[in-house]
Design a protein around this nucleic acid. Structure first.
Length: 796
RNA sequence: GCCCAGGUGGCGGAAUUGGUAGACGCGCGGGAUUCAAAAUCCCGUUUUGGCAACAGAGUGAGGGUUCGAUUCCCUCCCUGGGCACCA
């Protein structure tokens, strides 16, 4: 027999696939659909290294399996083609970004082709092509019309090296994610998208995504950063006179209001300016404020540094709960960007306040004591088993198959309480109702349809509780493939009700037992609240008049209703996420389709005039003045106002690189539509994306932005579903053989082309799937690659 | 500091309804083939004792539940990732 020769085999078949156009995807509706997507790459000049295709290999295997199982599979690829590297390259070489991008795309495509992927290239997209970004601009206009895009002059993150404003998501440790420069706060005219309006929904709807990785959902949760508490109003006193002015704080611990001993505002807080004449030491305060403002965020938020601040002499505030007068301080440990930029300080129960109080000799008053009872808590443990169930979607019930010792089958009802975890009913009446139902109609069908998927390992499921022996008589499957997304397409029709067969987890038993006091609280109890020990946990209220003796959560509720009654506060929710700074003062991006008119103000470019084409320029350099290079093209900037016809100017800022990627997955469904974003009927069939694979570094950028835009598109009726990606899997990095990141700098990059030449594409594909847990980063090993090649030779 | 994920041979790593721990691959040892080497094929390979049969120990550490724990629960340690003066 001929020797295994991958180079020959692979070339032969890849040619055949192209000649016969086998991977063209039609919009036929006679098969169930499956949309499987890779995060599309930025076509860099470096080309692919072996790490890039890992995710593509996985999705390709999955797509092929789904096709063989009878699904109509959509598996497209495209290019995230706007962005800084092409622009920086243009600055250096005067090559137009479009030229270098096109070259890079051709290179990427050739490299991908050799790996034998089954993409439908008819649906290829490129975010920098006018026929694509026309619709990116269209989405922006819809956001603008709904008041979700606004112009702002507030200080924002500014990268002095890239000479552009950046969003919070674009920072890493206070540095520019691209060039590592330290970020400054600079007031720049900018466009901002109101992502905060969607914060709550983006958080709540994470619950709709059981097939997303926990770690990514967790990151998004933290990024959105919802906290519940109260807004409390403090009256301002100037000298001895109580004014009618009030100042608000946000707190998550309204129960500690009796422990407030002073009050702090951020250096940027308007109180300072407004009370200039009342503050006796205004010069001193101004010096402090200016010093704070001149620091970068990185310096200001450095945890290691000492607390600093100054007292605003001549003014004070009144604690609404006991009328106590509190001194007001300014300190840079309070941030203007969170809550109201002012806090009530409770040094006994907050580490930062404690540190500050110690340094400046402010009083400390305990109002929470650890509650021994609440730390000897009862813990519940669940025992979870997998069951075969019949799911009747029409009547929203699951039927639980029971196999008695005599192999007689009954059906029980499962109350659907959560998505994956259901509790078997103990209600006998309901249970018997369904037994009757079954006995009257077709045991036989259930036997025929269900039994092939079931096993009867009764012996291995005899359990003994402390109560005695219990025999589990359920019918379950030993087939792991019975996951919800992989339901067996067989439908059992019983008593006119159609049921799917699938396997579900359910709680078999709940055990309770006592847990001893945790070490942390025990330390505290032993010390009996000694000085030098901050207690920021829950407990019982003390020294708090009407709250005394209540647990922390009871005290919170009571305090909030007290404040509400007095009109001095209310329940409130706060988020960490900030609005999305959406404009960039750079060239290679989508022009923002707006016009500035002296008479009408800011006017949208009419949709019929889209796309606003990115004009050619002579110089790509960002001006550094807060305007993009487009501002220098006077002919282009000049534009008649669409509303009044008078003289006006185009907006010259461009969109960030995240704009195109926030919706590109939709365009694959209908890439050539020039009448609409996409045909809503095609969206109905193909959406949402069933399986999405890409790097975890996008958890709080691309994946937040895309969910935001998608929900917006859902709200304006442009799409049918309110979440874009059903299942998300992140792919781990491939490190170089020396354990470092693959990089030109280290000279340790492995090129897929040379691997394919030496071992073949199949060996590389098998090896990359075999390296270890898919989502973990892992070092390349030539020995391992050789192993898979030998394995393939044995198969051959 | 807080949140999340993880910790199994010389190495990458299998083992999820709680039921034979170490699949598969790499490496290593031995053998076959060869004049010799490479490649290939076969056998062995957690560890301790033993010529062997076999016996003991063993999934980061300690405890718990169970007839039975890599798997469930608690406490602690370590590694990786994320967030961080977020009130």
């Amino acid at each position: 027999m001929e020797k295994y020769n991958p180079q020959k085999i692979e070339a032969e078949w890849q040619k055949k696939w192209i000649d016969e156009d086998v991977y063209r995807t039609e919009d036929t509706k006679d098969k169930p659909k499956f949309y499987i997507l890779d995060m599309f790459p930025y076509p860099s000049g470096e080309g692919l290294h072996v790490g890039h295709p890992k995710g593509y290999i996985a999705t390709d295997i999955f797509a092929r399996m789904k096709r063989m199982r009878g699904f109509n599979v959509l598996h497209p690829m495209g290019w995230d083609a706007f962005g800084l590297p092409a622009e920086n390259y243009a600055l250096k070489t005067k090559t137009h970004p479009r030229t270098s991008t096109e070259k890079n795309i051709a290179n990427f495509k050739a490299q991908l082709a050799k790996l034998g992927f089954s993409y439908d290239w008819e649906r290829e997209i490129n975010t920098s092509e006018a026929k694509f970004y026309k619709w990116t601009q269209w989405i922006f206009l819809q956001l603008f019309k709904k008041g979700l895009a606004y112009e702002s002059f507030e200080p924002i993150n500014w990268c002095p090296s890239c000479k552009t404003g950046l969003s919070n998501e674009d920072l890493e440790d206070g540095r520019c994610e691209r060039c590592d420069s330290i970020i400054e706060q600079k007031p720049i005219r900018q466009w901002v998208l109101k992502i905060t309006d969607y914060a709550d929904r983006m958080l709540m709807d994470l619950a709709k995504l059981p097939h997303w990785e926990e770690s990514i959902k967790e990151m998004q949760k933290n990024w959105i950063g919802r906290s519940e508490g109260a807004r409390v109003k403090f009256k301002i006193k100037a000298g001895d006179i109580e004014t009618n002015e009030q100042i608000e704080v946000f707190t998550t611990r309204p129960d500690t209001l009796f422990g407030a001993t002073y009050f702090v505002v951020a250096p940027e807080h308007e109180l300072i300016k407004n009370y200039e004449l009342r503050i006796k030491n205004y010069d001193e305060i101004l010096t402090y404020v200016n010093k704070a403002k001149s620091k970068s965020d990185l310096e200001r938020t450095d945890l290691a540094k000492d607390k600093s601040g100054a007292e605003l002499k001549g003014i004070s505030v009144v604690n609404p709960v006991n009328g106590e007068e509190l001194p007001v301080w300014v300190a840079d440990y309070v941030l203007m960007g969170y809550g109201t930029g002012a806090i009530m300080a409770v040094p006994a129960h907050d580490e930062r306040d404690y540190e500050f109080a110690k340094k400046f000799g402010l009083p400390i008053r305990q109002v929470v004591a650890p509650d021994i009872k609440s730390y000897n808590k009862t813990v519940k443990t669940l025992e979870v088993l997998k069951r075969l169930v019949l799911r009747a979607e029409e009547i929203n019930l699951d039927f639980w198959l029971l196999g008695g010792l005599a192999a007689v089958f009954h059906v029980g009802v499962i109350w659907r309480e959560h998505d994956d975890l259901d509790i078997v009913t103990k209600d006998k009446a309901t249970y018997e109702k369904f037994v009757v139902l079954l006995e009257s109609e077709g045991f036989k069908k259930i036997r025929e349809k269900v039994i092939p998927y079931a096993t009867y390992e009764l012996v291995s499921n005899i359990f003994q509780n402390s109560d005695g022996v219990e025999i589990d008589t359920g019918v379950w499957s030993d087939k792991d493939s019975l996951k919800e997304e992989d339901f067996i397409p067989d439908i059992v029709d019983f008593d006119g009700v159609k049921c799917k067969i699938l396997s579900l987890n359910f709680i078999r038993s709940i055990k309770e037992y006592q847990v001893k006091t945790r070490a942390k609280e025990k330390d505290f109890l032993d010390k009996k609240y000694l000085d030098g020990f901050v207690y920021s946990e829950k407990g019982a209220a003390v020294n708090s008049e009407f709250l005394d003796g209540l647990t922390t959560s009871e005290a919170k509720t009571k305090m909030i209703s007290f404040l509400l009654e007095k009109g001095l506060g209310e329940k409130a929710v706060n988020y960490k996420i900030k609005d999305w700074v959406f404009s960039r003062q750079r060239y290679w991006g989508e022009p923002i389709p707006l016009v500035h008119c002296d008479v009408c103000g800011i006017v949208a470019v009419p949709e019929s005039e889209l796309p606003v084409l990115l004009p050619e320029v002579e110089h790509y350099e960002p001006s550094g003045t807060g305007e993009s290079p487009l501002a220098t093209i006077t002919d282009w900037v000049k534009k008649l106002c669409p509303q009044c016809g008078g003289a006006a100017r185009r907006e010259t800022n461009t969109m960030p690189q995240w704009a195109g990627s926030s919706w590109y997955y939709l365009r694959y469904l209908d890439p050539n539509n020039d009448k609409a974003l996409i045909d809503i009927a095609k969206d109905k069939y193909w959406s949402p994306v069933d399986f999405y694979v890409g790097g975890a570094e996008h958890a709080t950028r691309h994946l937040i932005y895309a969910r935001f835009w998608h929900k917006f598109l859902f709200d304006i009726g442009a799409v049918n579903y309110d979440e874009p990606f059903t299942r998300l899997q992140h792919v781990g990095l491939i490190l170089a053989e020396d354990g470092r990141k693959m990089s030109k700098r280290w000279g340790n990059v492995i090129n897929p082309d040379s691997v394919i030449a030496s071992h073949g594409a199949d060996a590389m594909r098998v090896y990359e799937m075999f390296m270890g847990p898919f989502s973990q980063s892992c070092a390349w090993s030539t020995n391992g690659l050789t192993g898979t090649r030998k394995f393939l030779e044995k198969v051959w």
